[in-house]
Design a protein around this nucleic acid. Sequence first.
RNA 1: GGCCCCAUUGUCUAACGGUUAGGACGCGGCCCUCUCAAGGCCGAGGCGAGGGUUCGAUUCCCUCUGGGGCUACCA
Length: 476
Amino acid sequence: MVRVRFAPSPTGALHIGGARTALFNWLFARHLNGKFILRIEDTDRERSTLEANKAIFHGLEWLGIDWDEGPNTGGPFGPYYQTERLALHQKYAQQLVDEGKAYYCFCTAEELAQRRKEAEARKEAPRYDGTCRKRSAEELKAKLAAGTPYVIRFRLPPVGETAVDDLVRGRVVFQNEVLDDFVILKSDGFPTYNFACVVDDHLMEISHVIRGDDHLSNTPRQILLYQAFGWALPKFAHLPMILGRDKARLSKRHGATSVIEYNGLGYLPEAMINYIARLGWGHGDQEVFSRQELIEFFSLDGVTKNPAVFDMEKLKWLNGQYIRKLLPERLFDLCEPLLIDAYGRHDLAYMKKVVAVFQDRLVLIPEIVGLSAYFFKDDFEYDPKAAEKHFKTANAKVILTTLKDRLAALEPFAKEKIEPVFKTLAEEMKLKLGAVIHPCRLALSGRAETPPMYDVVAILGKEKVGARLDKAIAAL
RNA sequence: GGCCCCAUUGUCUAACGGUUAGGACGCGGCCCUCUCAAGGCCGAGGCGAGGGUUCGAUUCCCUCUGGGGCUACCA
């Protein structure tokens, strides 16, 4: 049974990198009919917050990444909040101590910092020096009895090597001597990441650990822990990092970094899913994938080794692609609140027609507001450059006046009836169609670019069209 | 500093010793066209450097360079 997990720490919103890790795990599980587990690694009590926890749920929900086991959902391997597993972590840490594979360490943070500084000054690796590695039983008892704060350190085998057989990178070998006796249980009694991760992954019967590249260097420590316990290793797969434009790790500096911010910016979750799926993964020449296709095609074989730069332009393109494919109803639902917020309530049918005519023109949902302004407000200015070109012509007045009269006579005021009015007028005046349409466009919208004229005229309706033409004629 | 990972156009990627190095975003041009989009077509642009191995290297090996990660009582 394939069991994978996404194990974020609730110290901030779900960011792009985390979302991609979650997605790959989710796709891997769905593709193989396995289980996708969500585990919240909240053992850093300083930085973990409830808001961040909620934000992660929110982000995953927005993306449509659901979990088979985890907070709220439950499952047979709970609890799924790491801090609620504290007794388990302490029990296993104690087991290692009892077996002599871990030991109490009473060195204070200040002492460690001092020694680290000294080591660095000597150009040595800043490893734990093993002060507490060999304390006598009496010494130990005395320290404990005195209530001296302590941590538990893993007694790391100082020789030999530890190999990670990574599904993405192949075999990576580390010399144990470059590792040190790392802390597994902090002085507050909480486990460290490397320890909790191993205990929980084992207890939750995780079969594949799919996570960011930044954990590759931690993996030998974890493997040594598995070995100390005599537990079977899961398979490991390390995904390449996602970088910003400057090739540095993606961070706040690079703009929107939390996935949910993209929601507010007007990105569609399906576009985001598609985009991040292509960051570090590919399937031939295909660029646009439905969720079903991603599940069908996803494989660790398609995962690349090199880091990927987050490219907003391509995300935008994909977003446009998905907006085009949206059901008109859904596009409207996304646009409606923005339009109401900007222009107040208008007739529902009218708003729907306006939104529909911009479906091919939107890249981001909020663009609807600016693009459609003249459909909701009458007091617009004429674009000066366009006015110079289309109003300051000998024919402008005649064109607009004639248009006004003929359109006023139309019944019904529909696109099919509107079109001939323009074409006939152009023919009569021996003008190109554009020569008639451009001044009209400017009169009706104040702009040089709008959706096709007959649509605009039809949607605005006879009354508004008449009034705006009058206003333009007066302004000529 | 030590250890580890990575390296194809500006960006995401395909290629798994022999290809005119393919696709996509972006960029430029053209077509369509009432404008703007959408759509279609075309174009510019790449194997980081140096050594090997081989009949032949983008591909395999080494060195360098560049970027990233780990080296915490953060995950």
